[in-house]
Every structure is written in structure tokens, then in C-alpha cells.
Design a protein around this nucleic acid. Structure first.
Lengths: 342, 342
DNA sequence: TTACGGTCGGAAAACCTTTTCGGCCCGTTT
DNA sequence: AAACGGGCCGAAAAGGTTTTCCGACCGTAA
């Protein structure tokens, strides 16, 4: 066998440790794992030997024996990592510094690649999978007969037998509008994103609900739908103001759209937040915090989503599976674009 | 043993396949791996049995035996995934649909977490590591005596014995200015990022080089340094225009800064690109493509970086290690903010 | 009929760790 | 003095795969 590169010697194995410590392999194993059938003195000798050899137990052998690898796959389809990295962080946090590691693979929204990765992960005997879809709409299930539990996050599975975790877009829309109302706004418009996204429509549902509860009408008469782009935010704002000049608040379907909204308002000479308050969605830090003024936004708490996903997955691995769709609440992040009216 | 959740039956093993096919384990293995000491008819029987049981070989057992796992760890410290996801994609591409998988872990720039992940990856016997730093400056080496080869990408290692891959910030700065000159600009200013970043200073070096070659001076007299934010881009632009009103081009140290520059120029009544051309850096799609006008930017080709990193790592794993720092060229992406003067 | 070469299948070792069970030794009790 | 019990340690099996080597069988040539 060729010696690996930067590598020094072949990695030490347990029998190397045992030999150096002058004990059997079994005793070495027990000593290192805290089993208490070894004399303290013997244990110390073994531990010392292990350190000297910088021994690290072979997780392959351990996993082979235990039937568990302490490994979880996070399969994403996110092209920019905006969603998956926070979810990954949350999941890592949930597993803490324990034995379980989370590994991320990117399928790029390609079903072939996804299949490839699933096979690779399963052959490596991960204990479970977290699947993060490309967009928040329901996606095809990986199937009912996988050998490990699966949790779908961000995008739910089409199958009700799977466990899915999604964020509460209806509640988020409601939250945005309630905040605007609390800021004293009454003529609230909504510039949504791509209407082929369920999330876009759900947010509108929340908007209309909150308005109805407050006895208000949607300014502009109807929600505007377009694309998830700044350009659409600009265009829609111009249309809206032309048609309904007395708008005093705009809830945008995403932070990108909100950036366009801010831009257009600025150009049209409307002060934000004095004349018009603006709320975005996603709390995409780079977009929202750097806007002028900084953008109030609905945070969908992806880290939290990842943490819950990991908890549910751990429970399922331990034999307590769940199914159905769990809807996680959003959170309002207040910034300058909605400073309450004075 | 408890049966896993969504799981059906225990996963099939090679001996299950062998039994179903009526052959020995050895023969089953050879049949599935294309060894040619089995009759075609026997092979067919085995393959059929494997499919019926949806057999997938246990990579743990295989790796244990082979001393190789076909696994590479991508250890990142990137908080938003803007850098690591493209690098991950490039690396996955380089390994193609072959046997090797790339798994990403996030250390969040925390040395403790990084150590933890390194240990976890090594105990799982990855064949190599790609380390992606948090920022493009040199970072501490993981050490010379790891049992597997390591490639540092984006941020070089402090040790010359390691192999590092970085993007050519000097060349990128040069490229931006040369482009502006080619567009007919002569009074070119530079609004850089955080001067504690080597990358910020390197880009300036390229800028000054290109200007010198063309016999030009830097407009504004000196490069401006600040932070990597839109706010800084806005502020610096205002300062710059007050002091040097006849500027006809601005090269910004990042796309975020460039967004601020565009914003300020717009506010000051300068048309882009007619009065002032603007070039950004990073080619951060969401920022650059949605700017108004769309932003010409220097692309540091992270996918390419990931691809090369994977190739070098593969070579090192195969016993042909390299060391030193390899500098990869950038690429200019032309958009509306520098339409050539007519 | 015997010897020989080639083809194909199987037994067994190896990879590394954990755990069970048996055995040894020493001290204590009857 | 004999028996018993407890504390420590080691032998061995198990987990799933690949590979090496050996043996069996068949057909052909002498």
C-alpha cells in the first residue's frame, strides 16, 4: 500500500495501542471506552499509549459492528446555499458535540444527481437523511421503503407518510401585516413573488387574513404577483403608486423584491418609513441589513428548522418516528424600514 | 436490534444475494464486481438476485478492507455558503459520478469546531480533505502530520509545505481596470474593501499596475478603503465625487460595495454607464445581476477552484502530492454597468 | 484410458473494533 | 484448610466485503 501524502506513518490501530501498553486488544478497548472492568493503573497505561500513538478509533469498523455510523446526510438542492447552510448549522447544533456528524451533499435540483447521492449515502450507511428541497413547494418523496428515516425540511414531501417541516408562510404574511397595522398603517399593499410558488400564495393568505381581522382592505385592490426579483419590485411599485398613490405600507414577498420596492419609492420621492413603510421576507442578512433604510423582514428561522429536523430525525433513528407536516412559526425582525410612526 | 423507521426489512447483505442466487459469497462478489472468473450465466443469476433484494454493498466493510473509503471531506468556515457551495459543486463535478463522494462540514470559523470536525472526518477515514477558509487571507495549517492529504482552497495555508489554491486578486484588479480602459475610461477610481484583508490590498496592486501600464493615474489620488458594505460604497462615492468630480469610472472592491456606489451615483445624478462606469468584484449573481444597471464584475470562478482542488487532491491521494500556492485566474463578466462608450 | 490444461466456484483470511464469556488470582469466610 | 466470591484480564466471535489460492470438473490430446 502506498503511503498517503502529507501523511506520516500508517494510522495506529487498537492492537498497536494494546501492544504498546502490554495488554490485550479487549482490555485496551475497554480501557478507552470507560468500561469499568479494568484497573485504574491499567487504564492509565492504555490511555497513555493511545495518546502517544495519537490513536483514533476506526469509525468504519465500529459502525460495521454497531449497525450505526453516527452519520446523517443532509441532501440539498439549493444552488446558492442560502437555505441549506443555515439548516446545516441548526442540525449540527442539535446533534451537538456528540457522536453524530452531519454531512451535506448538493443535488442541484437534479433528480439523477439526487438518486446518485442517496445511493452513495445509503451505501455508506448513514443513520438518517434530511432532505432540503429547492423551493418550498411539495416535492416527490424519496419513497416509503428506504432503510433509514428521512425528514423533509423547507420543502415538504408529497407523501403524508413522510415527516415534513415547513415554515409558516401564512403566519409570516399575517405577522408582517399585523406589524404594519401596529405601526399605524392602514393602506397596506402586497407585492408578492412568483405565483407558481405555494409560498407566495400562502403569504397572501396571511395578509388577507390579518387585514380582514382589522377590518381593512388590501391597498391596490389585489396582491401583485411577478417574479422574485428586484426588477419586479421596482416595476410593481411604480404600477401600484400610479394606481393607488395613497399607499402607506408595502409588504414585499421577498427581501429582493423589497429592495426593488425601496429603490422605486426612493426614486418616486417617497420617504421610507415616513411616507411608506416596507416589510420584506426571508431576512436575508446581506440584502435586508444593507438596504437603505435597513429592511424589516420576516425571518423564517432556518437554523431553527434545521435544529428541529435533527431532533425529529434523532427520535426516528431511536425508534420513535413521526409523520405528517409540521409548520414552524416565523419571526419578525424589525429594522428601520418600519420605524413606528411617531 | 430495533427496525429503523420508515424502514422496511434489514438491508440485504452479500450473503443474502449469494444464497438467493445459489452460489458462494465469493462468487457473488466477483459477479457483481465484473471479475471475469464467473460464467456469464452465473453472473446473470447473481445480478438478478441483487436487484431483487435491492442490494447495495456496505461501504463500511469495503472501506475497512480496502483502506480507502472513496470519501472526501470539505471543511468550510463560510457562514453563508456563498463560497463553499460553488466550491463544493466544482469538487463534486471533478469527482464526477465515480466512486468518490464529497461531504461538507461547517466549522463556522471556530477553531474548536474545526478540530472536532477534522477528528470526526479522520475517524471516518476520509481519503482527503479540502479546507475552505473564512476569508482569503492565509490561515493556520491543519498540521504536517495528518494521515491524509489536504488541499487548502480560497484561503491559503500559512505553511508552504501544504498545497493551497487561491484566486488571483492582483490579476482581477488588473483585469477590471484594463476593461475600463478598453471602454474608453481614463479617470478611474478604486473603492476598496476592508484593508485588513490581503485580497483588498492585492486588488489595489493590480489596479495600480494596470494604470501604470497605461500611463494613467488613479483618480482620487489614492485607493479608498473601508468595509465590505453597501454603506461604505455609498459613503466613499460621495467623498470621491466631492473631491474628484470628473471621475468616469469606479472599480469597487466587491459587488456589495458596487451596489452602494451605484446607489450614490444615481442619487448624485450621474448616469451609469454614460457618465461613470462601474465594475464590481465577486460576481455575486444575486447582487450583480439585479443591480440597476446590471453590474459588470470580476468572477473568481469558485466552481473552477473547487474542481482544481478536487483534482489536486485526487492526485495526492494517488500518491502524487504537490505543495505551494497555486494562483488561479479570474474572469470578467460584462454587464450593463460598463457598456462600452459609443 | 490417462494426463493435462483451462474454466469456474468455494473456503478462508484480512480489515478493525466491541462485547460476551470464561478463567485466573487473591482475599475472605466457614 | 477448603470453598466461595469478586476483581481483572484475555480469547474469540461478530459485522460485510474483497481477494487469494485451491480444488473440482470438463474437454481434449496422447
Amino acid at each position: 500500500m502506498r503511503t498517503p501524502t502529507g501523511a506520516g506513518q500508517r494510522t495506529a490501530t487498537l492492537s498497536d495501542v494494546a501492544r504498546l501498553a502490554g495488554v490485550s486488544i479487549a482490555t485496551a478497548s475497554k480501557a478507552l471506552n470507560g468500561r469499568r472492568q479494568v484497573k485504574a493503573e491499567t487504564r492509565a497505561k492504555v490511555i497513555d499509549a493511545a495518546e502517544r500513538l495519537s490513536f483514533s478509533p476506526n469509525a468504519l469498523a465500529r459502525g460495521l459492528l454497531a449497525g450505526r455510523t453516527g452519520t446523517v446526510g443532509l441532501l440539498t438542492s439549493d444552488l446558492e446555499g442560502r437555505f441549506s447552510i443555515p439548516i446545516l448549522m441548526g442540525a449540527e447544533d442539535a446533534f451537538g458535540s456528540g457522536r453524530t456528524s452531519v454531512f451535506l451533499c448538493d443535488a442541484r435540483g437534479d433528480a439523477i444527481r439526487e438518486q446518485h447521492h442517496v445511493r452513495a449515502l445509503l451505501s455508506r450507511r448513514v443513520d438518517g437523511l434530511i432532505v432540503v428541497g429547492a423551493r418550498p413547494d411539495p416535492r416527490a418523496s424519496l419513497g416509503p421503503d428506504l432503510p433509514v428515516p428521512v425528514v423533509y425540511a423547507y420543502a415538504p414531501s408529497e407523501s403524508a407518510d413522510d415527516l415534513s417541516l415547513v415554515s409558516d408562510n401564512v403566519g409570516g404574511g399575517r405577522m408582517a401585516v399585523e406589524h404594519l397595522i401596529a405601526c399605524g398603517r392602514r393602506r397596506i399593499a402586497h407585492i408578492g413573488g412568483d405565483p407558481t410558488y405555494g409560498a407566495a400564495r400562502d403569504r397572501t393568505v396571511g395578509v388577507l387574513g390579518a387585514l380582514a381581522d382589522a377590518g381593512l382592505e388590501l391597498a391596490g385592490g389585489k396582491p401583485f404577483y411577478g417574479t422574485w426579483s428586484e426588477a419586479w419590485g421596482r416595476g410593481a411599485t411604480r404600477m401600484l403608486l400610479e394606481q393607488t398613490p395613497d399607499v402607506d405600507a408595502i409588504f414585499a414577498g421577498s427581501d429582493q423584491i423589497a429592495r426593488g420596492v425601496l429603490d422605486a419609492l426612493h426614486e418616486l420621492g417617497r420617504d421610507v418609513p415616513r411616507d411608506v413603510a416596507v416589510v420584506g421576507f426571508d431576512n436575508w442578512e446581506a440584502m435586508a441589513a444593507n438596504a437603505r433604510p435597513p429592511l424589516t423582514s420576516i425571518d423564517i428561522r432556518l437554523e431553527h428548522l434545521g435544529r428541529i429536523a435533527a431532533q425529529r430525525l434523532a427520535a426516528a433513528i431511536d425508534g420513535e418516528p413521526t409523520s405528517g407536516t409540521e409548520v414552524l412559526p416565523c419571526r419578525l425582525i424589525t429594522r428601520g424600514s418600519t420605524a413606528p410612526q411617531t
